[in-house]
Structure formats: structure tokens, C-alpha cells
């Protein structure tokens, strides 16, 4: 499966299909990278994809329980797709929904870091928020669609774990991050910024930088992306998490939404 705005690297297919030697593997998630870099917003997204998405998938792949097969690159066994009932159009994150359906039927899902797909990222903040808004609501829709598995681990234990991870990522984590930052502001304003809080913040920033160095080394990515990890922590994540939280509230309120259209500038290699 490949999205129209993405390009594969030369070894992607060979690297991806080799996992199907294991008859239990029903699908393989590929490695998505940002193509249109050299802009501060797309560079931040490039770091996010490396650190936030691919690292998490690599960890999930140890148990062969990747929770989202990304739209830009995914390999599927035909029988797994058939068992899952193919793609549905009742959620705005059909890739998450399809992955959950495959996991529910007992198939395992692996991750291949060398199957790379270069995709185009939004270059404007408005477009980025639109994308994340849709992702968040789509994932919540997919979780709600499969809610039977959340509270009943006897049906499929793997699916229950995966769904709880998704609940944490999409609901609890943004809420915790927003609360932490608000708490930080309030303490700073009311009680004055003590040296302890400043040191706490600096220690978190160092941790972020270390994580970025590790991920960039593991993926053999651009070193220039490392300093972005500070901006990523202070600004990017807050902006994204506020959008996620608002989208979550709107989803639970049942406010109408549509697919919208992301602006594409075209990939340099596609010409």
C-alpha cells in the first residue's frame, strides 16, 4: 500500500516482503520519512517522524504488534486483508482501523526500518493542524469502533494492549502534557521561578537531546536535526497537543468534520 504523495526507496519492496516468510505475519509497516525538508516546520516534522513515530514502531515490532501501518508504506498479506474485511470508510484514520482489524483476527504486524517511503509534509501551520486534527479524530473513531477489545482482554489480548497504548497516546498523553505545562506556568508566575524548576526543565531538555541523538544515529539521519529537539519540546509538542485535545473534545461532542484537502507542493523527484 502506497499513498499517492509518497515515493519509495529502491530497496523498500525487497526489505518489506521478506517478513512474510513468517506465516504469522499478516502485515508489515514501513518507515516513513519527510521529503520536503529545509523549512523549520518540515524539519520539526522530520524529527517527529524519526523520534516519535518510527522509534515507537520499532519498539512495538519486538512484540510484532505495530498499532498503525502508515498510509505512505504498508505491506499486507492478501489473506490478512481479507480476514480484516479490507479498508473501511467509516473512520478518518482508515490505516489505524485496518491495522486494528488485522490484529483482531490474530495476525502479527511487523516493522521494517529499511523499507523507506518519502512523503510530503505540510509546510504551513494551518495545514499541519488540519492534518493532526484529522489524525486525532480518526484514531479516536477507530478506537471507539473496536472498543469491545478495550475492556475484554479475553477476545484478543494483543489487541487490548495495542488499543490501550493508542488510548494513552491519543487521550492521556496530550492531556498530561498540557496539564504539566499549565502547572509549570502557574508555579512560575505565582511562586516565582525557582532554580529547582529551571534545573528540572533543563534536565528534561537534555533527555530530549539524548533521545534525538540516539534516534538520528539509529536511522542514519541528518545531524542538523538534533538542535530542533529543544524547539520540539518547548513549542511543537504543545501546539500539536492542544490541537489533539481540542479535536478529542470535538470528537466526543460529535461535531461534524470533513476530509479537507492538504496542499501539496510536489516532490522534487516526481518531476
Amino acid at each position: 500500500m502506497l499513498m499517492g504523495d509518497s515515493q519509495l526507496s529502491s530497496d523498500s519492496l525487497r526489505m518489506g516482503v521478506r517478513h512474510f516468510i513468517d506465516p504469522a505475519v499478516g502485515a508489515v509497516a514501513g518507515n516513513v520519512k519527510i521529503m520536503n525538508r529545509k523549512k523549520w516546520l518540515t524539519d520539526l516534522q522530520a524529527l517527529e517522524y524519526i523520534e516519535g513515530l518510527n522509534l515507537a514502531r520499532a519498539a512495538q515490532a519486538i512484540a510484532k504488534m505495530v498499532n498503525i501501518i502508515p498510509g505512505p508504506i504498508g505491506f499486507f498479506r492478501k489473506a490478512a486483508l481479507h480476514d480484516g474485511g479490507y479498508y473501511s470508510s467509516d473512520t478518518y484514520a482508515e490505516d489505524a482501523d485496518m491495522t486494528l482489524k488485522i490484529l483482531a483476527t490474530g495476525w502479527k504486524i511487523d516493522y521494517e526500518p529499511n523499507a523507506i517511503s518519502y512523503t510530503e509534509a505540510p509546510e504551513k501551520l494551518h495545514q499541519l493542524l488540519k492534518q493532526r486534527y484529522r489524525w486525532t479524530r480518526g484514531i479516536i473513531q477507530a478506537i471507539r469502533k473496536h472498543k469491545t477489545y478495550i475492556f475484554n482482554p479475553t477476545i484478543n489480548f494483543n489487541n487490548t494492549i495495542v488499543l490501550w497504548m493508542m488510548v494513552f497516546e491519543s487521550l492521556f498523553w496530550p492531556a498530561m502534557n498540557i496539564f504539566g505545562n499549565v502547572f509549570f506556568i502557574v508555579v512560575g508566575l505565582i511562586y516565582g521561578m525557582s532554580s529547582l524548576i529551571a534545573l528540572w526543565w533543563i534536565s528534561i531538555a537534555i533527555l530530549d537531546i539524548m533521545a534525538a541523538i540516539y534516534c538520528i544515529a539509529a536511522e542514519k539521519e541528518e545531524v542538523r536535526l538534533i538542535p530542533y529537539s529543544i524547539v520540539y519540546r518547548v513549542m511543537f509538542i504543545i501546539i500539536i497537543d492542544i490541537t489533539k485535545a481540542a479535536a478529542t473534545v470535538e470528537e466526543f461532542l460529535g461535531i461534524e468534520m470533513n476530509w479537507g484537502k492538504l496542499e501539496r507542493v510536489g516532490l522534487p523527484g516526481a518531476k
Binding site: L129, K130, Y133, F184, S195, V234, M235, I242, T243, A246
Partner: peptide, 26 residues
């Protein structure tokens, strides 16, 4: 340390305002 603290606090507050404003504009 106090200078860094001030920078961090101002940056966090302004990011919050920016994030909420960006969402409303969106």
C-alpha cells in the same frame, strides 16, 4: 539560572498563546 528560567517561562507562555490562537484561526 534566573535568566534561563525567565526565557523558559516566557517561551512556554507564548507557545501556549500561539497554540490556542493557531487552533482558533484554524
Amino acid at each position: 539560572i534566573p535568566i534561563l528560567s525567565l526565557i523558559i517561562l516566557v517561551a512556554t507562555i507564548s507557545t501556549f498563546v500561539l497554540a490556542v490562537g493557531a487552533y482558533i484561526l484554524f
